[in-house]
């Protein structure tokens, strides 16, 4: 055992080259003494004609000395250590532990946790849990942006969304959902629905505490539970919400202008 301690294979294993390969040696203008084997080889996406050419010049010998990094460059990896007191490695490790333990009293960097339920870290704006439906104004029913176009329903990878469109008294589609269910036991929060929605009607929420006692019905969120106001969207992700507002406003103006033009033409 002592012998093992005295000759740690650190040196054998990650040994510096006799003539270390510098980065310039690794470049492709291959007149240097040592070819970096992996550098001169390779076919990324070769043209079909030479698809299988190896690209390795014949002169390169099949040796494996090149890429071994030098020890000095790598922080604390010792370069030469002929004799070490048995146990000194453990003592070194203990010093690290001690530094962390005492450090946690003074150094913010070493104490990173918070007292969770009482203290909460605000998630970043892009953070996401499950989707919600955005409505404008105060009325969740009238202001809902969703037009029941079924795009998200088709694209949802685990098929967690189920939409039934509303129909007016003549049986024509009324461009709003009668039923909009998301099964959050199936939803994986991938945000593809929010990404493909052409009307910016579905966005990703930050809310995480969705536990319930029952398996099915209470994990299927309906339209009323999913609808949240645009003001709420501004509180969780104001960058995105502002951008969406500007985009919708521009769209509305464009439509308005087009309508006026048509009216003038008549």
């Amino acid at each position: 055992m002592t012998q093992l301690y005295q000759q740690p294979r650190i040196n054998g294993s990650i040994q510096p080259n006799q003539e270390p390969v510098t980065d310039t040696d690794m470049s492709l203008n291959g007149t240097t003494k040592y070819h970096h084997e992996t550098e001169v080889s390779g076919i990324a996406d070769p043209a079909p004609a030479n698809r299988l050419s190896s690209g390795v010049p014949d002169a390169v010998p099949e040796t494996r000395l090149s890429a071994r990094p030098t020890a000095g460059e790598y922080g604390n990896t010792p370069e030469r250590r002929p004799f070490r007191l048995p146990g000194s490695g453990i003592v070194q490790g203990m010093m690290v532990t001690a530094r962390n333990w005492f450090g946690s009293y003074f150094d913010r960097k070493r104490l990173v946790t918070v007292q969770y339920p009482e203290q909460q870290i605000r998630p970043p704006e892009n953070s996401r849990s499950i989707p919600f439906l955005v409505y404008d104004g105060d009325d969740p029913d009238a202001g809902l942006r969703c037009v029941a176009c079924h795009t998200c329903e088709k694209e949802c990878p685990p098929q967690a969304i189920s939409i039934v469109g509303e129909r007016d008294e003549n049986g024509k589609p009324a461009r709003r959902p009668k039923v909009f269910d998301i099964d959050i036991s199936v939803c994986m929060g991938c945000q593809i629905c929010a990404e493909v929605c052409p009307f910016d009607a579905i966005k990703m929420d930050h809310y995480l505490d969705h536990s319930s006692l029952e398996n099915f019905q209470s994990l299927i969120l309906g339209k009323t539970r999913l609808s949240k106001s645009n003001a709420y969207f501004h509180t969780i992700n104001s960058t995105d919400a502002t951008a969406v507002d500007a985009r919708l406003e521009a769209d509305r103006k464009k439509k308005e202008a087009a309508r006026q033009k048509r009216a003038a033409a008549k």
Partner: peptide, 10 residues
């Protein structure tokens, strides 16, 4: 693939 010749895939 060939690791020694660094070509492929076939």
């Amino acid at each position: 693939y060939s690791i020694s010749k660094k070509h492929g895939p076939v």
